[in-house]
Write a protein that binds this DNA or RNA. Structure first.
Lengths: 237, 237
DNA sequence: TTGATAGTGTGATGTGAATCATAGTTCATT
DNA sequence: AATGAACTATGATTCACATCACACTATCAA
């Protein structure tokens, strides 16, 4: 396993493009937070933390894509959220002093900073800007979870898979060509977003491809007809 | 429509049994918050606020039970959460300055206090105890939503309905007899929790009743065999 | 008290998607 | 370049649950 060499700066010098909640902090707050900051490299597929384990730090993604998933009682995986550059992970568990709610897995090679729990908690008290951001972030995540809940409860597999593709596009954007979804996922992972099986996902993607809404280039998925994909997903808001 | 007469005190004198996040505030904070407090009466079935509408105050339930639901694209209702005495409603929308995420409906006659948005927001900045409580509340709600998501995505209807009954019991407790679920819901509402249809809910409840796990007395549901109901719901945590 | 409305209950029928089975293909690692 | 593992693909079969259709019952307002 080759570790790619990247120089990760302190938060106050962090130059990533992204609008995570730490980015908007004052210079002083960033300096305070990044004292004794650690950083880790995770290879694609590696687990950053496991659902149920004790939380002891705050993760901030410097580079890479991460999926957050939970295991159902029968062991089937359900993806609940994604995270990318400048997003933070594990803050919920820190704040409520609970074990991690989900498992975080690197979808591609990742560099992740590890920030001190104590510093973060102190900053939460000192910097009202941060605590408000955290509240709004939680609120946004909750909204997303509730939306996903309704979708899975009420929509057909075809609608859910269309929506999963749109979710991927919204989260990770397009590649340089402006039409290929900027994240590669296996059919099985897409199934774990949409709450269906791998076989059904394969068939449904093939159908969407035959209908000309998307194009499948191996793991790369090209959105050929965005408006029709949106209407296929029955998104009206 | 007869309005039941209840004398609702200011927050600092509020004597409801319950452990909502406002209950733990200091006397001063409560006094501050309840200045120019309003209160409303909602008859069973009435809507307290609608999903999508602008938020302009914080609701705190003095008395009664409330369901929070969202509408799917096809108009089908999905219940996402419940609230009862001392719980607060609408805080998310205040904090992120967004429209209400869900519709709140009185499940029985309710008295609800209406607190000032400005006071609440000011208190959020002044009282770290409150902001931490809010964060933890959001975190708990998010956890609940994610759990419900997995359940609906992966469990059978029978498991989901069993779990819906347990959710009702956990939220509202038992009546005086110690075994009847302390909230009355129509079969259709139970279906809206479990993400299924009314007919299937009726059949499944009849099945659970025949198996001796529950007893149906009209809208009242008696839990006769709690352990087996838990195992039917496949809850292992 | 009555009529209307909302809720409960049951059978018959259809179907979307899971499951099972099997094979080809791509990918990573030595 | 080779070998095993992970992923993609496709057909056949099954089944849980939705849908439709109808009847009965409780509730509530006039």
């Amino acid at each position: 396993m080759k570790r790619s060499i990247v120089d990760i700066p302190s938060c106050s010098e962090c130059d990533v493009e992204g609008n995570g909640i730490l980015c908007a902090l004052s210079h002083e707050s960033k300096d305070f937070l990044s004292e004794r900051k650690g950083d880790n490299f995770y290879k694609k597929g590696q687990t950053i933390f496991y659902e149920g384990n004790h939380a002891n730090g705050l993760f901030c993604i410097y580079d890479g894509k991460v999926k957050l998933s939970k295991l159902g009682d029968d062991g089937k995986e359900q993806i609940v959220r994604f995270a990318k550059t400048s997003d933070i992970l594990g803050y919920r568990s820190l704040l409520s002093d609970e074990p991690y709610h989900a498992t975080a897995t690197a979808m591609e090679d990742c560099h992740v900073c590890l920030l001190s729990k104590d510093k973060f908690m102190q900053l939460m008290e000192k910097d009202p800007k941060l605590s408000l951001s955290v509240v709004q972030l939680l609120s946004k995540d909750l909204r997303g979870a509730e939306q996903l809940l309704i979708d899975i409860a009420q929509k057909s597999v075809k609608e859910r898979i269309s929506e999963a593709l749109l979710l991927l596009k919204n989260t990770f954007g397009y590649l340089e060509d402006g039409k290929t979804i900027g994240a590669s996922m296996t059919r099985s992972e897409i199934a774990d977003i949409a709450g269906t099986t791998t076989e059904t996902t394969i068939r449904t993607l093939a159908q969407l491809s035959k209908d000309g809404l998307i194009e499948l280039k191996g793991k790369k998925i090209v959105i050929k007809d965005f408006p029709r994909l949106v209407s296929e997903a029955s998104i009206y808001d």
